[in-house]
Design a protein around this nucleic acid. Structure first.
Lengths: 401, 401
DNA sequence: GGAATACGTTGCCGGACACAACAAACCGCA
DNA sequence: TGCGGTTTGTTGTGTCCGGCAACGTATTCC
């Protein structure tokens, strides 16, 4: 008996899909690389001059890009027109829900942060209460939007497990959220009729670094992100690894000590019980402190020679290298990026990380791994969240504009 | 300073690429699903009747498919022509290099094994010596090939880490291979001028199960494969996870016990030191035996109530569930398949596996996971290896034929 | 045996890109 | 300042591909 035939089998693209893809490729290029001459686009996209001309005409007509004369090139020949993204006019709203902060930004096409608001987030603030605050920030930013501005979408970054299909936050120990429908709540609160996409912080930060950060051009990347817990955004074969439900990348709950410390997730010995914020502060005897500042103070103390702090940091660095080695063996990535608090831990214990990585990783997998810290800084989550929204535009520029 | 512009940026497909993709989609469909009526193809591929007609005409002209009248359908109307793959004429050679066996097969388009040879593999047989044997098997099979037969490629499955770019076997503890260029050796030995693709056994078996086995239609799959060691073939987002160099999926060397048993890879406490063949036999006190038969005898003894065997099996089952939980948390797959000796271990200790998986896996990740055993049996590696070779044909049918 | 149904085939159409020819803009040099 | 060389934008033409509609054909049902 033959199994059920899948309803959709990807056939090749039809005529107009070719056009959509080419428009998307052109727009994506100027979105990622900034203003670009038509001559350069011809070379990079491998299309004919006339085709590039037609594509830019379409995009200009839709108000997504504008053309201008280039600065003097110093070379002979007619100067090529420069295509630049309409960063001021075409934008997305980006949110980041963090442990103790709510952040909102208006991000222009091309990845520029045009405007931003930040609020403290009281502990135990649920999605239903956070949504009005976030929507309020947007309303505050609204007057600065040009009259002909067009919002192409909303992206949200949350430090938790997000169901891909509807943006439900299934579990987020740092914020205390369990099954909080932040996507739906925001949709109800914001009047505007644009799609809302929710993603995990580590995922979107990885996405951002892959688009326009250290990992540009790398198709196999693991981005470790630590706040209270530890998560990963994984790029495999150039695409985000989301898993079936959208929960992929929960490396913080990879168990590394069989009957180890109890974890918030209910299991024991998870990786984050060894390299997370709590673990480090506890190991250093600082049971009462918490938060990123406390962690930085700890690293600082270790740097200044505090023996107990040093022991705790080295131990955590060793565990960091251990987990990274496991991930490297599983994924064979080209680059591992240490973000959030993990960045600080890595910088404070690079020797331990490398040592353990080299002893535990398979030689072949270690050959081309580069260990890096993020390039985009604190805005990575916002830029990445906006990137989620822009994806829809880039997939079909004319329809979304 | 802007980073270096990537040399290639995927533009949309050109005109003839559309044709290639549609030809590939049609050929892939009949390759995977067997003989199909043109009417059904019209529905599944979403193309017009006339287009399907033109595509099949092209493929028929290239000798890749043939058309015939269908059996009576019982429905009114003119019966649709049936498109079937030219399984007898279009074929690939598939090899499998296992611990103690060398296997070769001629696999027809559609995935049918047309002919096969098996040889014992003496321990310590290197690639340079294996290649002539494998080539000899092909020469033996040659007389049975029809006069107008066309070989579209060669695929090789090896139980080890394979460099993707050139098919070099970097490390294969079971066979004792280190940096053995099996791809190049086979290319030199076989006179035929066809591309040779080498892959890891677990990878190709996963590929086969994803194409035409239990995992058909599942886009996020982990296929665990055990022989002496343990590896995984991983399908993420519908595509094989190869990693940067091709070494992805080495889950057997995920360390689960920090300073555990020494592993052949040089590290300690790797997962396969707890669930591999050696580990099981050792734990059951059967230090002198080895190989799959010994393992089956062990499971048999456990099933009959042998206390020591039961303890060993349950313990290994628990570790199996433990590692699967880690992988499920990282990948959020839709299905986990237990193949090779891991299949037997799973069947002998399903209760332990599930119990540990449920206690260690994150609830959200466990929601839709299905645990399965392979559907393709012992031929999975050969069929999968052939699939590697067919991939090139399916990507551009007319050029490859 | 005729009506109904479903399918293959053919010719035509519009969309998309490549190509070639021409026009435009810039540089360098005399 | 003027001219050739160079590079690029623009426009018209050609080719390819898939959709569409009309027609012919093969089968079932009544």
């Amino acid at each position: 008996m033959r199994h059920a035939v899948p309803v959709t089998m990807r056939a090749g693209p039809s005529q107009d899909e070719v056009r959509r893809q080419n428009l998307g490729a052109l727009l994506r290029y100027v979105h990622v690389h900034g203003a670009t001459t038509r001559a350069e686009l011809t070379g990079v996209l491998g299309l004919n001059r006339s085709t590039i001309g037609a594509l830019t005409a379409d995009l200009t007509g839709a108000g997504l890009v504008s053309e201008g004369t280039s600065r003097e090139t110093g070379r002979a020949g007619r100067p090529s027109l420069v295509v630049r993204p309409e960063s001021e006019r075409v934008y997305a709203y980006a949110y980041s829900v963090e442990v103790d902060r709510l952040r909102a930004a208006r991000v222009g096409l091309g990845g520029v942060v045009l405007d931003r608001r930040e609020l403290d987030r009281p502990r135990n603030l649920l999605a239903g209460e956070a949504a009005p605050l976030l929507a309020g920030a947007v309303k505050e930013m609204h007057p600065a939007v040009p009259a002909d501005g067009v919002c192409v979408g909303v992206g949200v970054a949350v430090c938790g497990m997000v169901r891909r299909e509807d943006g439900m936050v299934r579990l987020s120990p740092p914020t205390g959220w369990v099954d909080e429908p932040i996507g739906a709540a925001l949709a109800a609160e914001l009047g505007i009729d644009v799609p809302i996409t929710v993603g995990n912080v580590a995922d979107v930060a990885a996405f951002a670094e892959h688009c326009r950060g250290v990992a540009a051009g790398c198709d196999n990347v693991i981005y470790l992100y630590g706040d209270v817990g530890v998560g990963a955004g994984i790029i495999a074969g150039g695409r985000r690894l989301t898993g079936h439900g959208g929960y992929g990348g929960e490396v913080g709950h990879m168990v590394v000590v069989r009957e180890g410390t109890r974890c918030e997730c209910g299991s024991r010995g998870c990786w984050e019980t060894e390299i997370g914020e709590h673990a480090l502060l506890r190991a250093a005897g600082r049971h009462d402190s918490r938060g990123r500042d406390a962690l930085l103070a700890l690293f600082d103390a270790a740097g200044r020679g505090d023996a107990r702090a040093q022991t705790a940091v080295r131990r955590a660095g060793d565990w960091l290298g251990f987990g990274v080695a496991n991930l490297v063996n599983i994924f064979n990535p080209e680059m591992v990026i240490f973000g959030g608090t993990i960045r600080d831990l890595y910088l404070a214990s690079a020797a331990q990380v490398r040592s353990r990585l080299n002893s535990t990783g398979l030689p072949a997998c270690l050959e081309h791994v580069r260990l890096r810290t993020p390039q985009l800084g604190a805005d990575a989550a916002l830029v990445g969240a906006a990137e989620l929204a822009f994806e829809r535009l880039l997939a079909d520029p004319l329809a979304a504009a």
